[in-house]
Amino acid sequence: SGKETSGSTAPALSSQRLLWCHCYHHCPEDSTNNTCRTDGYCFTMVEEDGGVPVQTAGCLGLVGSEFQCRDTGNSRQRRSLECCTDQDYCNKNLHPTLPPLKPPLYVDGKIHH
């Protein structure tokens, strides 16, 4: 007996019009030329990784897009995500920027981050 890895994406929906998007770091297994397809939105995201902004991109399904397209990151890591759906590969024109650093908290004269 033994283990290997292989593709995991379900077959695309043929009849429904699907949107093509650019993908990087979020490409499905069977992706070619950094492209993916979706029934929802393309997205581009920038997140801070070790102090350096890292940009990724991909496809978001229609289900859950209302929540994922309003992603605001968390206190531990700055992140910004933008969605679009107006045309194929529209996320190539998205350039989200990291949210500003939160000012340090002054309590009893000491800085608290």
Binding site: A10, H26, C59, G61, Q68, N74
Partner: peptide
């Protein structure tokens, strides 16, 4: 992943659960 892309067919609940876990 934190962003559940289209290939995962995740329901809204999974996306909310990701946000809850991500925000701690």
């Amino acid at each position: 992943p934190r962003v559940l892309h289209y290939g995962y067919h995740s329901p809204n609940h999974a996306i909310i659960q990701t946000v809850i876990n991500d925000l701690g």
